[in-house]
Amino acid sequence: MVKDMLPAGNVEVIEAKDGVEGLDLIHKEHPNLIMLDFLLPKKSGWDVYQELQKDPQLCYIPLMLMSGRKEEVTEKLPEPFQFFAFVEKPFEKKQLVGAIKEAMQKAAQKKKAVPAPAGAPPAAAPAAAAAPAAGDRASSAEIQALKKQMAQMQGEINLLKKQLGQVVTLIKQKLK
Rank of each mutant, 00 (worst) to 15 (best):
E79C: 10
W46S: 05
L77H: 11
G155P: 03
D24T: 10
E102R: 14
A99N: 09
G9E: 10
M150G: 00
V2Y: 07
E21I: 11
F83E: 14
E72S: 13
Q95N: 13
P122M: 05
K172V: 04
F84H: 14
P62H: 09
V87L: 06
M153N: 07
A145W: 02
C59D: 09
L160S: 10
C59Q: 12
P126F: 00
K54V: 06
F84A: 08
F38L: 09
I100K: 06
P31C: 06
E75N: 15
P117N: 07
P78Q: 14
A113W: 09
K76H: 14
F91G: 06
D24A: 12
K112N: 11
A125N: 04
V73C: 02
D37C: 05
G98D: 15
I143F: 11
A103W: 07
A145S: 12
A128N: 03
A133Q: 06
N32P: 00
Q149V: 00
K42P: 00
N158A: 11
Q173A: 13
S67F: 04
V97L: 11
Q53K: 12
R69D: 10
A129I: 00
K42T: 02
V114Y: 13
A145G: 03
P115S: 10
P62E: 11
E102F: 04
E79V: 13
P56V: 04
L52S: 05
A151G: 11
E92F: 12
K94V: 15
K3S: 15
E92W: 02
E51W: 05
I171R: 13
P31I: 01
A145L: 04
V48F: 07
P62K: 05
F86L: 13
S67L: 07
E29P: 00
V114T: 08
A16L: 03
A103E: 12
P80E: 10
V168T: 12
P132H: 01
A145C: 00
L170Y: 07
M64N: 05
A131Q: 08
N32K: 12
K43N: 00
I61W: 04
T74L: 11
K70Q: 14
P80I: 10
D18C: 03
A145I: 01
A124R: 10
A124Q: 11
F91S: 04
P41L: 05
P115M: 08
M153Q: 12
L6T: 09
V48L: 04
V167L: 14
P7K: 14
M66A: 12
G9N: 12
L63N: 01
P78Y: 09
E72T: 13
A123M: 08
N10K: 14
D47G: 00
Q152H: 06
K3N: 13
L58V: 03
P62R: 02
A145K: 13
F84R: 03
N10W: 01
Y60M: 07
Q144S: 09
I171L: 14
Q53E: 15
D37S: 09
N32W: 00
K148P: 00
F91Y: 15
D47T: 06
L175G: 07
F91A: 10
D55I: 02
P90Q: 13
A141K: 03
A108V: 06
V11D: 06
G135S: 07
L63Q: 04
P115I: 05
D18V: 08
K111M: 15
P7S: 15
R69C: 02
E12T: 14
P90M: 08
A8M: 14
Q82Y: 07
